Simulated assay, not measured.
Amino acid sequence: MEEPEFRIGMQFANKDELKESIREYAIVQGRNIKLVKNDNKRIQAKCAGHTKCPFILWASKIDRDKQTFAIKSLSLEHECTRVDKLKYTNSRWLSKRFADKIRKNLDWDVGAFKAEVLEKYHMNVSKHQIYRAKNLSKVIIEGSYVEQYARLWDYVEKLKKANKGSTMIIKNKMKGCRPLIGIDGCHLKGPYTGQVLTAVGIDGNNGLYPVAYAVVEVESKSTWIWFLQLLIEDLQIKNGKAWVFMSDKQKGLIPVIETLLPTAEHRMCVRHLYSNFRTEHAGLAMKNILWVAARATTIPWYEAEMAR
């Protein structure tokens, strides 16, 4: 596909495969080739670079009940000159063609990327196309990881068949989280607005463990009640005294916790407290004293730090 060569009688599995081959040929040859006919039965490609250019490719389905296309007529001669810009060299094409190189170097310089396209394909592309191509490539790369991890169970079954007596265990459920849940909301950016409500725990290795999230229109008392009711049901929280919730001082959250879990401990995030505290008590010394008081684990220690 990187350097397609056409010949009479060449067959393609379907129309899309043929069209992709024509696009690749146009890029490699530097010719402005357009599809003048493009339907489910036939495809005709001509060179738009010169009115009298003899290049033509005509293909059609070989059978009504099949998707296979075959080239019926072909002339590869050109009387036009090469071009260095084509609509086919868009961001999507760049992301597919250079995905492997981007995978190896996610910080690939835009100028170097552009120079590589010019050297390899003699095509000029814009910086905007390069930026979009890099973002699209990341989606392709991350998507492939998701697909591969999803096949781990198939891989384990293959290993069991090929290596009799081996032990393979996949464990994807984390246990040992502390009865401490941090809850917060944040705004969504992009074409789909709204807010995300989250509940995050802490596992036995002091790592953050995402417990639940929901996308809602606005962060309000009613949305928090809906979210936390589902959370309580899923975690089967019956004894509120055994749980601690941490949040910022969002007005709707305080009465929600008091209503749904009146016996649970509800504490405020010190980072959010400090953002209010520093407006009246600025400076590193005051910040350090605040954090020492927050970290106090006994009442006498806490009272001594608060007195300071």
Rank of each mutant, 00 (worst) to 15 (best):
K101Y: 10
L152M: 12
P179N: 11
A150Q: 12
N124C: 08
C186H: 11
K127R: 15
I102N: 02
I181Y: 01
T89L: 07
G176A: 13
A133S: 11
S144H: 08
L188S: 04
L136T: 09
V146W: 00
I140C: 04
L94Q: 05
R97F: 04
D109V: 08
S137H: 05
K175S: 11
R82D: 13
D84R: 12
L180K: 05
I141C: 01
L180G: 04
D154I: 00
C177T: 03
H187S: 11
G143C: 04
V156D: 00
I130E: 01
S95K: 05
D109Q: 10
A162L: 08
K164E: 06
L118H: 13
K87R: 13
K87W: 01
W153H: 15
V146Q: 15
W108Y: 12
D100S: 12
I183S: 02
H122G: 04
K164G: 07
E157C: 07
V83I: 12
G185W: 00
W108I: 06
K138C: 08
N135Y: 14
Q129V: 03
G143Y: 05
G165P: 03
W108D: 08
G165W: 05
S95R: 06
N163P: 03
D154V: 10
A150V: 09
R151I: 14
D154C: 02
L106W: 08
A150P: 04
G165K: 07
K114S: 09
E116W: 12
G143H: 07
L152N: 01
K158H: 05
S91A: 15
E119T: 14
L180Q: 06
G182M: 11
Y155I: 13
V117A: 03
F98E: 12
A112H: 05
H78G: 01
M123Q: 11
K72H: 00
M168P: 00
H122Y: 07
I141K: 01
F98W: 14
W93F: 13
A115R: 11
K160H: 13
K85R: 10
N124V: 10
D184I: 14
H128V: 14
L76K: 03
K173S: 02
K96D: 06
K158M: 14
K114L: 07
S166D: 09
Q129N: 15
V125R: 03
R92Q: 10
A133D: 02
V117D: 01
Q148M: 13
F98M: 15
P179Y: 09
K164F: 03
S95M: 04
G111K: 12
I181T: 05
R82H: 10
D154A: 10
K87S: 09
A99G: 00
H187Y: 15
R97M: 04
V83Y: 02
L188R: 06
R178E: 15
Q148T: 14
I140M: 07
H78K: 08
G143N: 10
K160D: 08
K87N: 09
